[in-house]
Computed example of a mutant assay.
Amino acid sequence: MAESAIAALGTAQAALDELDRRCCDIGRSPRLDALAAKLSEIRLTVLDPGGVDPGPVSALLRETGAMVRALRIECCAPNRLPLYATLLDQLNEVQRDLVPTQ
């Protein structure tokens, strides 16, 4: 189960790396760095040998998704929007894999 979440996080990180590479606004770099830190935090939570607690993972995913949405809304380059969509899709994949539905 965690393997597909780790794969989704890898895809999300690749999309974020591409966004960072293409970004022309220096002011966005700290926010992109903060987003990278959140993805790393999620990855560490998923890899915890004690197992994944759905509550904290769900909270982290919500926070990270909010960061992605805020960055996407402010983005001035339509050709980057698919990268934001990829990030959100991958966060949803992690959510489906690790957080039981109610």
Score class of each variant (00 low, 15 high):
residue 33 D to R: 13
residue 42 I to Y: 01
residue 23 C to I: 06
residue 42 I to V: 09
residue 49 P to A: 10
residue 46 V to C: 02
residue 23 C to P: 02
residue 5 A to G: 12
residue 36 A to C: 08
residue 51 G to H: 11
residue 32 L to A: 04
residue 21 R to T: 11
residue 11 T to Q: 04
residue 5 A to W: 01
residue 16 L to F: 02
residue 35 L to S: 02
residue 4 S to A: 13
residue 12 A to H: 09
residue 23 C to V: 10
residue 17 D to H: 04
residue 43 R to C: 00
residue 46 V to S: 01
residue 36 A to I: 12
residue 45 T to V: 11
residue 24 C to D: 14
residue 19 L to S: 03
residue 47 L to Q: 06
residue 29 S to E: 15
residue 22 R to D: 09
residue 52 V to Y: 04
residue 24 C to Y: 12
residue 50 G to L: 10
residue 15 A to D: 08
residue 46 V to R: 04
residue 32 L to W: 01
residue 36 A to R: 14
residue 33 D to E: 15
residue 41 E to K: 00
residue 36 A to E: 05
residue 52 V to A: 11
residue 32 L to M: 13
residue 13 Q to Y: 04
residue 9 L to M: 09
residue 24 C to I: 11
residue 28 R to N: 10
residue 8 A to F: 02
residue 11 T to V: 06
residue 18 E to H: 08
residue 36 A to Y: 03
residue 10 G to Q: 07
residue 4 S to N: 11
residue 40 S to Y: 08
residue 10 G to W: 02
residue 45 T to W: 07
residue 53 D to G: 10
residue 32 L to T: 06
residue 28 R to H: 13
residue 18 E to Q: 11
residue 11 T to E: 10
residue 39 L to T: 02
residue 20 D to K: 08
residue 15 A to N: 06
residue 20 D to N: 11
residue 27 G to T: 08
residue 12 A to M: 01
residue 49 P to D: 09
residue 49 P to I: 09
residue 34 A to P: 09
residue 42 I to A: 00
residue 8 A to S: 14
residue 9 L to Q: 01
residue 17 D to A: 03
residue 18 E to D: 15
